[in-house]
Design a protein around this nucleic acid. Structure first.
Length: 183
DNA sequence: TCCCCGATTAACT
DNA sequence: GTTAATCGGGGAG
């Protein structure tokens, strides 16, 4: 089994962790089905001073995991329908995370588009608020594993999707030309 | 308490 | 390109 990332990998700004997560693996074990595995191909960063971030107005019951230790999973419900997966970054009290937007299905996932888009990725990995706060470094339910390190020119940045504030920040990253990215 | 609207998606025209 | 689905968070009163 490939190594996981150490806690310190996540104790950094989301704008650094987001591109570094491209090409890495998301793994999930459920009570019944097979192990799920996918390769991350698209991410977005949300920072503490970022008007588009849930953490912008401080800690609340919903987003408190964002203000906890790095390397944990933040799961929230959007539009009353979809659960999105985020990786908490930066140190305790800062409020920063990386949204996982798309991945290449590998093991235990049927269908071309099941991981294309944050809502579908959450559904494919059977995420809901019960997964909020899971430890991605030392937990045994959902975690991240190291994949190949990508060359800088294999990564491209662009504007974030679906937000109405801080739209000028080019904080979405994806693997250039990858067939599994969203949209 | 009320009310608006969102880090989306699928199913329309 | 447009819109319904669906519901909880959090600001306003």
């Amino acid at each position: 089994m490939p190594p996981r990332f150490p806690r310190g990998f996540f104790d950094a700004p989301a704008i650094e962790v987001a591109p570094a997560l491209l090409g890495q693996y998301l793994v999930r074990v459920t009570g019944d089905g097979p192990e799920l595995r996918a390769r991350i191909v698209e991410t977005e960063a949300y920072e503490p001073d970022d008007g588009a971030s849930h953490s912008f107005r401080g800690s609340t019951p919903r987003n408190r995991v964002m203000f906890g230790p790095p390397g944990h999973l933040y799961v929230y419900l959007v539009y009353g329908l979809h659960h999105c997966l985020n990786v908490v970054t930066r140190s305790v009290g800062e409020g920063s995370a990386v949204l996982l937007r798309a991945a290449e299905p590998l093991d235990g996932l049927a269908g071309r588009d099941v991981c294309r888009g944050p809502g579908r990725l959450g559904k494919a990995f059977r995420a809901d608020r019960r997964l909020d706060g899971q430890d991605l470094v030392a937990g045994s339910t959902i975690w991240l594993e190291r994949g190949a390190r990508l060359a800088p020119d294999a990564i491209e940045a662009g504007p974030r999707i679906g937000i109405t504030r801080a739209i000028e920040r080019p904080w979405r990253w994806r693997i250039a030309g990858d067939p599994w990215v969203s949209r």
